[in-house]
């Protein structure tokens, strides 16, 4: 399947496109690269190179507030990812596998709203809900509840796409071969949508680890997450220590990209085998 054959351009068009392409990549990568470089600079001022040093990383590790925020982030991301993956997968199953049920039309709309609603609106409404209506104190729990409220929908989108590509007759075949509903789900449906579920989970994890806006609205006193804590630091003063923690966060993001790519590559190579 060669798709690219109809694209014979005149050479100059291709040249312009190529130059433009690499310039945009430079635009996307140079700022990050410079940020990483200055995290190793032995100078208090970011932007002035003062020789190589690990000291900012060292300082970061020995900053109890930062490490506390990191630990909080890990807890929130872990719990909200698990819950939103379960909720999102259930919703995807209900939407894709059941033709009609009470309130399905409304649910189909509600499910997608958290994806398109601006984060500030989401944060503001959760803040009002938690503090003015529900009798709860803002804490890590309210952050987790907020994160689930938006990331479950992303999981649903990813899993639903996977389900839509899954041949219905596989589940019918299992039923025909004496499997009951639960066994069919456990032995057939779940293993086959697993790449989608994992993709959704990674997305939920990334969203939770990246979130600043909603967390800032619904966090309790003294229990911040890493991005919000770093955000606060940047507002006060830019230091190379922020570059160090930024580099750490970038490394984490990058790791998640590669994990998700590995998942995709596996499911793609499987579907390629099928075509052959």
């Amino acid at each position: 399947m060669s798709v690219q054959e109809g694209t014979a351009h005149r050479p100059w068009v291709d040249k312009v496109l190529t130059v433009n392409g690499w310039l945009i990549f430079a635009f996307l990568y140079l700022p990050i690269l410079i940020l990483v470089i200055y995290s190793f600079s032995d100078s208090k001022v970011v932007g002035i190179w003062g020789g190589f040093t690990w000291k900012w990383y060292n300082r970061m590790i020995h900053n109890p507030e930062m490490m506390g925020a990191l630990w909080n982030s890990a807890k929130v991301a872990f719990i909200s990812t698990i819950i939103s993956t379960v909720l999102g997968t259930l919703a995807a199953l209900a939407l894709d596998r059941y033709r009609r049920w009470l309130g399905k039309g409304a649910f189909d709309v509600i499910m997608y709203l958290p994806v398109i609603i601006p984060e500030v609106t989401m944060g503001a409404m959760l803040l009002i809900w938690f503090t003015q209506i529900l009798p709860v104190n803002l804490s890590l729990t309210t952050i987790i509840l907020g994160h689930i409220a938006f990331s479950a929908s992303f999981v649903t989108i990813v899993v639903r796409a996977r389900l839509a590509n899954l041949d219905d007759s596989l589940e019918e075949a299992a039923a025909d071969l004496y499997a009951n509903r639960w066994t069919t789900f456990r032995r057939i449906t779940l293993p086959l949508i697993m790449p989608g579920v994992m993709g959704g989970a990674l997305l939920a994890l990334t969203l939770s680890l990246d979130d600043v806006v909603i967390t800032e609205f619904v966090q309790g006193p003294g229990a911040s997450l890493l991005p919000v804590y770093v955000f606060g630091l940047i507002r006060r003063q830019v230091t190379p220590e922020i570059n160090a923690v930024s580099t750490l966060m970038l490394a984490l993001s990058m790791m998640l990209v590669f994990i998700s790519l590995a998942f995709q590559a596996r499911s793609i190579s499987k579907s390629k085998n099928k075509e052959a």
């Binding site: 007759s169 019918e172 075949a173 299992a174 071969l177 004496y178 499997a179 009951n180 086959l192």
Partner: peptide
């Protein structure tokens, strides 16, 4: 329901379980 009937089906698309090998597919029922 289908799992309680003494009949079996060969599906148009074959509906072989892609994550199981030949042996596992045949043994499923």
């Amino acid at each position: 329901p289908p799992n309680k009937r003494p009949v079996n089906t060969v599906f148009q698309s074959y509906a072989l379980f892609p994550h199981m090998n030949v042996e596992k597919n045949v043994a499923f029922g």
